[in-house]
Design a binder for these strands. Structure first.
Lengths: 230, 230
DNA sequence: CGTGCAATTGAAAGTACTCAAGCCACGTGG
DNA sequence: CCACGTGGCTTGAGTACTTTCAATTGCACG
């Protein structure tokens, strides 16, 4: 039983057209508003009122929480087409920040919820999105709860590979800090894991933000705990 | 009955609603089927076909994943009224096991999904449930990614306190192993954390499955990283 | 060709884990 | 009624891994 196989294949960061249907929903299209955001800019902060929810037109956004001591936990990265900034409450649960220059479509929350409530197809879509999101969150729970640093980093690289549909020259669009905050590690540990993989010839990195994987299977084994390392 | 659902009462607020709505939906009520499960019995296993989804009538159920090396990660515990065994795929993503004797209501998945798709109120409720579930999962992500053993255990105790609406004689209805698997720790580390809290007089445990908290605020500080501990 | 930030490396310290043993409540059988 | 086995919980010692703190290197840019 390839237990984690399905778990580790997350949704596509780059090419999801998850809510393409949104665009076909007249009320939503009418209320939508596209905004440009530069890399590093914050869209909203944890605890803010949440009058809008958002959908990525281009670029990548991260959503994270900040702890009292300043450490951060990145909940998720969102790519083209993905919806974010939604919660059952009236306030944002995370802080959202662009990690590349972005174009982001915003929908007034009440209009969005109203549209979801009255359009069966939209509702269905939204449900699927939420279930998939939950699935993703739980993959991360397994990763954070039970995997070693090497396994976490390896899983993350494999996720990027599957999202970019190639093992050649895969781009890391986020900083080491973002990776660390996402994987529950420190920046140094991420570096060391990458260095380790490089030294073992399992990945090739022509630059700090670009990597190639000669043999994906070996990395799979490592991610799943078969490699020598825990 | 009062002792049957001590866990997860903050979610009861939600759970109760889930319960009420489900029952008021005639198609669902007609297709529902109650089954009794003894503590320790498995309802389904990760990877199984998922012809049903479930709702707890009484007792507590845990949902977990098993890794290749046998370690486990408990995704969540479910109490009275709560729905579980739902995914966007046709297969179960987790294994579900009763941790106390339970009564569980099952709904054929297709009937359930059909009912959700056609009943706006049910759809709305299901949506809220999913958003709340996602919120819970993300709190766990922060816990697993960024909190120390003491913080994790403390947070868990506080969760139980809030669910059972008292800080006196709170029941731990799950084993140390279940706690460990939920918190991403080993059983020994959970024990040591509890011992530590006991020695510091922050909790009192008349028995291994029962605790009282003299001063909740101090524990709050520890959980949030203000306490002297890391 | 500095400047500044990101990434990497090194050394020491700390935290949680592993393995192993001891404890305790409970149920069973002599 | 008590010795004995069982399973869950706790404690101890040693180890492995990750973090922390402190430089150092690499790289893009003005």
């Amino acid at each position: 039983m390839p237990t984690l196989a399905p778990l580790l294949q997350s949704e596509d960061i780059f090419a999801t057209n998850e809510l393409a249907t949104d665009l076909s929903e007249p009320r939503l299209a009418a209320a939508a508003n596209v905004r440009r955001v530069k890399a590093g800019e914050t869209l909203y902060v944890e605890g803010d009122a949440a009058p809008f929810c958002y959908q990525i037109v281009s670029g990548v956004v991260k959503e994270y929480n900040t702890l009292e001591d300043g450490r951060r936990q990145v909940a998720d990265f969102y790519g083209v087409g993905e919806l974010f900034g939604i919660s059952e409450l009236d306030e944002q649960l995370h802080t959202a920040e662009a990690i590349t220059d972005c174009a982001v479509r915003s929908y007034p929350r009440d209009v969005f919820m109203q549209a979801v409530a009255t359009s069966p197809t939209l509702s269905q879509h939204f449900l699927d999105t939420l279930m998939t999101r939950l699935h993703r969150a739980r993959e991360r729970i397994v990763l954070l709860g039970r995997m070693s640093a090497i396994q976490r980093v390896t899983s993350f690289l494999l996720r990027l590979v599957s999202e970019q549909h190639t093992a050649q020259n895969v781009r890391l669009m986020m900083s080491r800090q973002d990776m660390a905050d996402h994987l529950g590690l420190t920046i140094e540990t991420v570096c060391r894991a990458l260095t380790d993989l490089k030294k073992r010839g399992l990945i090739v990195m022509p630059s700090a933000r670009l990597f190639t994987i000669p043999d994906e299977d070996i990395l799979d084994d490592i991610a799943h705990g078969f490699g020598s390392v825990h």
